Computed example of a mutant assay.
Amino acid sequence: MSVFDLSSRTVLVTGATSGIGYETARQLAERGATVLVHGRTAEDAQAATDRLIATAGIDSAQLCGFAADFTRLEEVEVMARRVAGEHPHLDVLVNNAGMAAPERHTVTADGNEIALQVNFLAHYLLTCLLEPSLTTAPGGRVVNVSSSLHRTASIQWSDPHRARRYSRLAAYAQSQLALTVFAADPRVAAVSVHPGICRTDLMSLYGLKGAAAAEGAAHVVRLCDPATEIVNGAYYDLDQRVEPATAATEDRTVKRLTKLADLLVGHQA
Rank of each mutant, 00 (worst) to 15 (best):
Y236N: 06
Q156A: 12
A218L: 04
A42H: 13
T49G: 03
H38I: 04
S18N: 14
V107A: 00
A109Q: 10
H161N: 12
G216E: 00
Y206P: 03
A163R: 15
D239H: 08
R199D: 11
T136W: 00
R31A: 14
A16L: 13
A178L: 07
V242M: 12
Y172I: 00
R252L: 15
E86P: 02
S8N: 09
T228K: 02
A163C: 10
E215G: 08
Y236T: 04
L263W: 13
V94P: 12
A25E: 09
R40A: 10
V221A: 09
Q176A: 04
L177V: 07
V76W: 02
A100M: 07
R162E: 05
A178T: 11
D262K: 05
D251Y: 02
A248R: 02
I197K: 13
T135C: 08
Q240W: 14
F4P: 03
G210C: 15
N232Q: 10
V242A: 11
V188Q: 14
G32V: 04
A97L: 09
A212D: 15
M79L: 15
A218N: 03
R187Y: 06
D225K: 02
R81A: 11
H194T: 06
A269W: 13
S167H: 14
A173Y: 01
I53T: 12
A100Q: 09
T127F: 03
D5C: 10
G32H: 05
T24S: 14
I230R: 11
H105M: 02
H87W: 14
Q268Y: 10
L205G: 09
R72T: 01
A190L: 12
S192T: 05
P226S: 07
E131Y: 03
A33E: 08
A269D: 11
D225P: 06
L52H: 06
G210Q: 14
R9K: 15
M1W: 01
I20N: 04
M99Q: 09
R168W: 04
N96W: 10
S154K: 12
L179H: 05
S158R: 06
T258Y: 07
A109K: 07
V265Q: 00
P88N: 01
E43C: 07
V35Y: 13
G98N: 00
A269N: 07
A269E: 07
K209M: 10
S18V: 07
E243R: 15
F182P: 02
I155R: 01
T135S: 11
D50Q: 13
I114F: 05
A42W: 12
